[in-house]
Amino acid sequence: MIDLHCHILPDVDDGPSDLEGALAMARVAAADGIHKLAATPHVPYSGLDRAQIAARVAAFQEEIDRAGIDLRLYVGADAATSIGAEALAAHPLHDGPYQLIEFPHTHLPADAGELVFELLNRGRVPIITHPERNPSVLRSPDLIGELVAAGALVQITAESLTGGFGPESRACGRHLLRNGWVHLLASDGHSADWRPPVLSKGLKVAGRVIGKAAALKLVVDNPAKILAGEGL
């Protein structure tokens, strides 16, 4: 499996505080069947630019290899939409046209559709992170359908589907799945224990909602195409 949203870098924003914690996350991910993972620190809150993130990823990959863990890292960012389209465009997933964008945790801005349009015009394909946890989407899930129709992709958190973020997010995530508005399942992992990098449990739930084959696309086929810069 491939996890394209994970806060695994040591001593970066609200991920693991040290190398030991980061390696513990890597072991959890590999044990769950995740063998490719995008390290996606918060931007701008991590204080890191693209080059600094890439350097941190390369250094941590060396530690992962030294520890004998079967996990390949990719460069990404969980970028806040508040920085605007121009700054967002500097933080792709790997080297392709796709990128994670994070709307405010409190609401979905009225100009969300305009931002999607502007990013697409810049040659970027925005992937909206965890909308099933956003209060505006919880009240009006069909807002996500409008953004998908405009060209955005959607990533939901695996733990949302298992109830880890409460019954409302669980129900919303399943609603988005049933409507075909979900393109990725990711862990949004932050530690080996609290919000671990685990996809298998959410994958099982997704399989019950949309079927096993369709669910597998969210953690295998689609993320592989995104890393390759191919269309979904």
Rank of each mutant, 00 (worst) to 15 (best):
A213L: 12
H183L: 02
L203R: 04
L177V: 04
G202C: 11
G166M: 10
A186V: 00
L199G: 13
P196S: 14
W194E: 15
V182Q: 06
W181H: 09
A186H: 02
L185P: 02
P197T: 13
E168T: 14
C172S: 04
N179A: 13
G164I: 00
L176M: 08
L184A: 12
L199I: 07
L218P: 09
L176F: 03
D221Q: 14
L203P: 00
A186D: 06
L218S: 08
N179V: 00
R170V: 03
H190P: 10
D193R: 14
G166E: 07
E168S: 14
G202D: 06
K204V: 05
P167V: 05
L177R: 12
F165R: 09
L185M: 10
V220P: 00
D221G: 02
G202P: 09
H175K: 02
P197G: 15
L177S: 09
A206T: 05
D221F: 00
P167W: 11
P223M: 08
S169G: 13
K204D: 01
V198C: 14
D193V: 14
W194N: 08
I210E: 02
R208H: 13
S169H: 07
H190G: 03
S200M: 06
V198P: 08
S187G: 07
N222K: 03
G164L: 06
G164T: 00
R174D: 00
R178M: 06
R195L: 09
L185Y: 03
G173K: 03
G189T: 04
S200H: 06
H183W: 04
L218W: 01
S187D: 07
S169M: 14
R178E: 14
K201I: 05
G180P: 07
K212R: 15
S169T: 15
L203S: 00
G180L: 08
K201T: 09
H183N: 14
A215C: 13
H183Y: 04
A186F: 01
H190N: 02
L184E: 02
N179Y: 03
A215Q: 11
N179S: 13
V220F: 06
S169K: 07
H183T: 03
G173W: 03
S191L: 02
L199F: 05
V182P: 11
I210D: 08
A192E: 14
R170A: 10
C172W: 00
R195V: 09
V209L: 00
